[in-house]
Simulated scan of single mutants.
Amino acid sequence: MKTYIYLLTFSLVTFLGLNESLGQGNLIMINYAPTLPLGNTADFTSNFTGRGGNFEFYWMRSNQLGIGVEIGSVSFKDKIPDRTFSSGTVTITGTQFRGQASTPILVSAMYILTDKGKLKPYVSIGAGIMQNTQRIDLGIFVQQVSSRHFAFKPELGAIYQISDYVGIKLSGKYYQSVGNNTIDSQSMLGINLGFVMINFNN
Results as ranks from 00 to 15, higher is better:
165 Y>E: 08
133 T>A: 09
100 Q>S: 13
195 F>H: 00
51 R>F: 14
30 I>G: 06
26 N>A: 04
29 M>P: 01
139 G>D: 05
137 D>R: 10
59 W>V: 06
81 P>V: 11
198 I>G: 00
92 I>S: 14
76 F>H: 09
143 Q>A: 12
159 I>N: 03
125 I>H: 03
2 K>H: 05
60 M>G: 07
106 L>H: 06
74 V>F: 07
65 L>I: 12
8 L>C: 03
67 I>G: 13
189 L>M: 05
75 S>L: 14
123 V>R: 04
143 Q>N: 14
199 N>Q: 03
112 I>M: 11
178 V>M: 07
166 V>F: 13
71 I>E: 05
77 K>W: 09
41 T>W: 08
15 F>D: 01
29 M>S: 09
101 A>Q: 13
35 T>P: 03
202 N>M: 02
12 L>E: 00
128 G>A: 05
140 I>P: 04
90 V>L: 14
35 T>N: 08
132 N>F: 02
49 T>D: 03
189 L>P: 01
31 N>V: 03
40 N>E: 15
198 I>R: 08
96 Q>T: 12
122 Y>W: 06
20 E>K: 10
22 L>E: 04
179 G>R: 02
93 T>M: 09
161 Q>L: 03
29 M>R: 15
180 N>V: 01
153 K>C: 09
190 G>S: 13
124 S>A: 12
77 K>Y: 14
68 G>S: 10
108 S>C: 11
37 P>R: 06
42 A>L: 09
78 D>H: 06
184 D>F: 00
33 A>F: 04
43 D>V: 06
174 Y>C: 02
151 A>R: 02
93 T>N: 12
193 L>P: 00
78 D>R: 04
78 D>C: 12
68 G>D: 09
59 W>R: 10
184 D>T: 03
186 Q>R: 04
146 S>M: 02
146 S>P: 01
160 Y>W: 07
48 F>H: 04
113 L>W: 11
120 K>R: 15
4 Y>G: 08
178 V>L: 06
77 K>S: 14
67 I>H: 11
188 M>L: 07
190 G>L: 02
117 G>S: 09
159 I>G: 00
178 V>T: 06
187 S>V: 02
47 N>P: 03
78 D>Q: 05
40 N>M: 04
133 T>F: 02
55 F>E: 05
119 L>E: 08
145 V>K: 08
176 Q>V: 07
181 N>S: 14
18 L>R: 03
164 D>R: 14
143 Q>F: 10
84 T>Q: 15
164 D>T: 05
160 Y>R: 01
167 G>I: 03
